[in-house]
């Protein structure tokens, strides 16, 4: 499962559209399971797409929405019903087959969109912001459900999100895009521990890695690797209490630093403290 993450306009959706064939590449090629896809029309690619906002047809029932693609492909009615039922069963939509999209909750619509992708029996699922139109309260549950479903099926999935925490928790590997360029592809762990560029460092993690200018180098340090000691190195700019931990914003030479400290250990705002940096990552200034 590959998560593609990046800020708006970084080319995430364009990437999905290239994979599923709605767009053709200006250069380079798209290969799925080793098969070159240039010239293969979208309906013949082993790819299914779940669109942002789900893109259900409001005038069709759940059954008709799920079976839409089969109908366009002129699959016989009997086959079509069987495949629609199978997908509906898998996603717990069986009792909703005769409803219309307007009568469904956000989570149910998401499952309909997934079912519509599933009936294509694809080798690759493309999911464009699959969780973004859900209520934030439902998102964590939906995220787990989605992960379970895709893993249980054992299929390849590429999903796009602008939310790095979603990418980190759902992706086996995460690709970070910026302005149409790939910055890094790796496991969430490697991305966190060894970001390839300052951009990746500043994009991944909450709070993100702090970046400091040191001569001709950029030094990155995670908040949990900053230790506060008595001293005069840093000015305490602000203290944010997050309940389970406290984050201290420090002004130091070359930039601003965030430190994670246990509850009750925060220095007063406006005081000066010493700083010891644990593990750091350095890049040349680019």
């Amino acid at each position: 499962m590959l998560a593609v993450v990046g800020p708006s306009g970084s080319g995430k959706t364009t990437l999905l559209r290239l994979v599923c064939g709605l767009l053709g590449p200006d250069e380079g090629s798209v290969r799925i399971g080793g098969q070159e896809q240039a010239g293969v029309p979208p309906e013949r690619r082993p790819v299914a797409m779940v669109f942002q906002g789900y893109a259900l047809f409001p005038h069709l029932t759940v059954r008709e929405n799920v079976g839409f693609g089969l109908r366009v492909r002129r699959v016989r009615r009997g086959d079509r019903d069987a495949r629609v039922h199978e997908a509906a069963q898998k996603l717990g939509l069986y009792d909703l087959l005769d409803r219309q999209p307007a009568e469904l909750s956000g989570g149910e619509r998401q499952r309909v969109a997934l079912a519509r992708a599933l009936v294509r029996d694809p080798a690759v699922f493309c999911l464009d912001e699959p969780l973004s139109s859900l209520d934030p309260l439902l998102r964590a549950d939906a995220r787990r459900e989605l992960a379970d479903l895709l893993r249980a099926d054992g299929r390849c999935a590429v999903f796009v999100t602008h939310d790095q925490s979603e990418a980190m928790t759902l992706g086996d590997r995460v690709a970070v895009l910026r302005d149409g360029c790939l910055e890094q592809v790796d496991t969430p762990r490697a991305l966190y521990d060894a970001p390839a560029t300052p951009f990746v460092a500043s994009f991944v993690g909450t709070p993100a890695m702090s970046l400091l200018r040191r001569g001709s180098q950029v030094v990155g340090v995670r908040p949990e690797h900053v230790r506060l000691v008595p001293g005069q190195d840093a000015f305490v700019h602000a203290v944010e209490d997050h309940g389970h931990e406290v984050q201290v914003l420090l002004d130091v030479d070359g930039g601003r630093l965030v430190a994670r400290v246990p509850v009750g250990d925060a220095p007063p705002v406006g005081s000066r403290v010493g700083v010891v940096l644990g593990r750091t990552t350095t890049w040349p200034v680019g």
Binding site: R17, G21, P42, E43, R44, M49, F51, R116
Partner: peptide, 8 residues
């Protein structure tokens, strides 16, 4: 887009 993906 949904319809084009299915070949319409």
């Amino acid at each position: 887009d949904v319809a084009r993906l299915e070949g319409a």
